[in-house]
Design a protein around this nucleic acid. Structure first.
Lengths: 339, 339
DNA sequence: TAATTTTACTTAATGGATTAAGTTGTTGTG
DNA sequence: CACAACAACTTAATCCATTAAGTAAAATTA
């Protein structure tokens, strides 16, 4: 590998001169600079990030953490789309993206935790987009001094980009009510997250404001993004004496589970029962009928997260810590009947 | 940040002793080793990858290249699933994953190409999983001395993992023929790739072996993974005087486009026309009727690619360059009628 | 013209870990 | 007992780029 040393020898200058010439420093004459640049190009010089990182403590590398339980990390369309846009913005600003994980071993010291991994690779910043924000390692990372942005969760004094779950659920409930539904159920996860609190809270509040009652049986529990759980929850709802006319699902995958249960019960959507998803993933648009859902501005979330994080990295002083909240919009499919 | 130097001072030994103790070298006494390990732990020592990479030329980092045109890279379910499994294996063997891109700037020398980027980050190996294997930069990377594995394409003397497109299409055609279909169409992309050649070739060969004729009009062209193109191609097929009874799509997303066209034409699947996908993505299973498709062993492809690449990195001498071919299996949905 | 400033460099230290080669002190062997 | 063999270190070079501080020559100013 050609290094600055080689170029320096070739051009009869010092290594420092080469470094300055190539990095655009002012105190190098144009003649020398051109000579050096030409030699670098001819000799096939490639900079070495390791040396640069070692010296400058800047890696131009962003760590991305997402918890991969059940492998629906990357294959989770919401996350994939988000990461895709995040990556795009990061790329354009000269940052690479590396996944943070636990596999890297630190010699005899066992495997590294997330923070150790982030320090090991000298990430300039970190994106956390996962559900398990109560994981002690995630908390440790969030409390470190590394610039970071979280998605759909907010740590104190740290940047976050969140979708507006309160308005999302409210809009959906209002839409269903407008379509004539009075008996509306909402399936949700019982984890202790802001997402759940906001959504369930918003659901209850909106229903109350409409003067509609919500029996406990209308709030069954099922794990997010799992078809199996929501299928069972749906079965329970369908078995109720006074069953709902409309079921809200916490995400489109859960809705798929619900659809299966509804079909099995011999019912038809939306004639016999109406359903609503959340997230607006691609699959929903191709169902028959297509799924009415709250389309999250996922691309915007990804781009915003990248911009905020990079701003935090490059201008820590001028960057105000904020909790960015983005609103979604209803995608009106055909899964809600007017009654 | 505490470094080996700090530990050395604390323990009254040389930096070399610390390095050896922590990396498990034999010529350190157990007593000293324990003392050093304890100090490292107490002092919160974190290794520094930059220094290690600089010195050893090993990064424990694998570059992943995929071309992101139209942003269906990460959100492409096939690729996402593949990458997810690849990452999983890489993780477990102590490798990180970083995306290769073109955004990284090399000072005044403009942006780096793929190979330059790979060298810059000192990737130990590279995974190439994209469609554009004719891109000069991809070829340049493939011809470098960096260990690499390609997916669904094979460069001379380089490792690859490919799905068996020949047997895949053959199995699907045989299945359709078994169901009684004689007029079968295959929509395909007209790009100059091995995937296309293999599939179209296999389609024609299999049809011929069954004594079935394939008019040119039964082989319309549409871009892969785009619903719009396949929708139009489907419309053309439906408009034919002697229209096919069964349409093969090159991937499940194309099938979605076809479904839209079929519905618009007022036809019903599979009563009026049968369709078959390729890839076996999740969405197909939730359609009504569910999509008969060739389920690619995507997880296996990802895992195999990772294992082969790491073997190539760690044992270049003993690792035989091979072209791994994995077979898919038909997922029998309800989109093909028995006639 | 002498003094000062500027330009265009060079020197040398630095970041942190690895490793070949060298140096002790200790144990073993004939 | 003398010398070899070994264990347990240390020394010092190295990977490559950056940058503060220094220097010599050229340009400017008084």
């Amino acid at each position: 590998m050609v290094s600055m040393k080689d170029i320096a020898r070739e051009c009869g200058v010092s290594v420092a001169a080469v470094s300055k010439a190539l990095s655009g420093q002012p105190d190098i004459s144009e003649v020398t600079r051109e000579k050096i640049k030409k030699a670098a190009s001819t000799m096939g010089y490639q900079p070495n990030s390791a040396a640069k990182v070692l010296r400058t403590h800047r890696s131009n590398n962003i760590g991305v953490l997402f918890v991969d339980e059940a492998h629906n990390g990357l294959t989770n369309e919401f996350f994939a789309l988000l990461l895709d846009r995040f990556k795009h913005v990061a790329d354009s600003k000269g940052y690479d993206i590396t996944f943070i994980n636990r596999g890297i071993s630190s010699g005899s010291m066992g495997n590294m935790n997330y923070l150790a991994h982030a320090r090991y690779r000298a990430f300039d910043g970190v994106l956390i987009a996962c559900m398990d924000f109560h994981n002690p390692e995630v908390i440790e990372l969030a409390q470190s001094n590394i610039p970071l942005v979280t998605i759909d969760y907010s740590f104190e004094d740290r940047m976050s980009v969140e979708s507006d779950n309160v308005s999302g659920i409210r809009d959906l409930v209002l839409y269903c009510a407008k379509m004539g539904h009075r008996k509306i159920a909402y399936i949700h996860d019982d984890n202790d997250s802001a997402v759940t609190r906001d959504r369930v809270g918003s659901f209850k509040d909106t229903m109350e404001s409409l003067g509609l009652s919500v029996p406990d049986s209308y709030l069954p529990v099922a794990e997010y993004r799992k078809t199996e759980g929501s299928r069972k929850a749906t079965e329970k709802l369908l078995a109720l004496k006074d069953r709902p006319t409309c079921i809200l699902y916490p995400d489109d995958f859960s809705a798929l589970g619900g659809i299966a249960a509804i079909k099995e019960a011999g019912l038809e959507i939306p004639k016999d029962i109406s359903i609503v998803g959340y997230d607006g993933i691609r699959v929903g648009r191709h169902l028959t009928p297509s799924l009415t859902t709250l389309r999250q501005p996922t691309e915007l979330i990804g781009e915003t997260a990248a911009q905020k994080l990079i701003s935090l990295i490059e201008n820590p002083a001028e960057t105000r810590i904020e909790k960015v909240v983005v609103k979604g919009r209803i995608y009106e499919g055909g899964s809600v009947a007017r009654i």
